[in-house]
């Protein structure tokens, strides 16, 4: 679906290409039922959510923020992330484009009911905040033995 970056070769990039393909397959095909708390396209920050058998991963695309200034909370199955990205314009400069988001933001994401806030963790890397929320044991698929 996506052309690979030109001029990039070698095993590292093959691996990256595979990763890209996986992500394209995973999120590229997703068709949206509109969530009650979802925001219009183009809202800041964009969010992806992926479900695994043992946890949910929420990715917030939040470039250029200090992760320590973010408020991240989970109440039952509602995850809320709020914070501020205040861009200061150079007063002596002449601006042609100001497309980047500046100001306060707040995103609320409804997770499936089987999540548990205990053991949730967050990481910030390359401007992406990844929040991993474990799912309760009984929600995980169980193998049933045939006797």
């Amino acid at each position: 679906m996506f052309n690979s970056l030109p001029g990039l070769e070698g095993p590292v990039f093959d691996q990256f290409r595979r990763l890209q393909e996986e992500m394209d397959e995973l999120f590229g095909q997703w068709a949206p039922p509109t969530g009650i708390r979802s925001l219009p396209r183009g809202s800041f920050p964009p969010v992806n959510v992926g479900a695994s058998p043992d946890k949910l991963d929420v990715y917030l695309f939040l470039p250029g923020v200090d992760p320590r200034q973010l408020n991240i909370s989970i109440q039952q199955s509602l995850l809320t992330v709020s914070g501020e990205r205040r861009l200061t314009a150079d007063e002596k400069a002449n601006y042609y484009r100001q497309e980047r988001f500046s100001g306060e933001f707040n995103r609320a994401i409804t997770l499936p009911e089987d999540v548990t806030a205990d053991g949730a963790e967050a990481r910030y890397r390359d401007g992406v905040l990844q929040i991993s929320v474990p799912r309760r044991e009984q929600a995980r698929p169980r193998q049933i033995q045939v006797r």
């Binding site: 992500m23 992926g50 990715y59």
Partner: peptide, 23 residues
């Protein structure tokens, strides 16, 4: 030009996606 790369656990399924491209 940039390639987007995020850590995807095994067996993950998409629940919600604002970002649907990797480039």
């Amino acid at each position: 030009e940039g390639g987007l790369e995020i850590a995807l656990p095994e067996q993950m399924q998409a629940v919600y996606a604002d970002i649907r491209s990797t480039r």
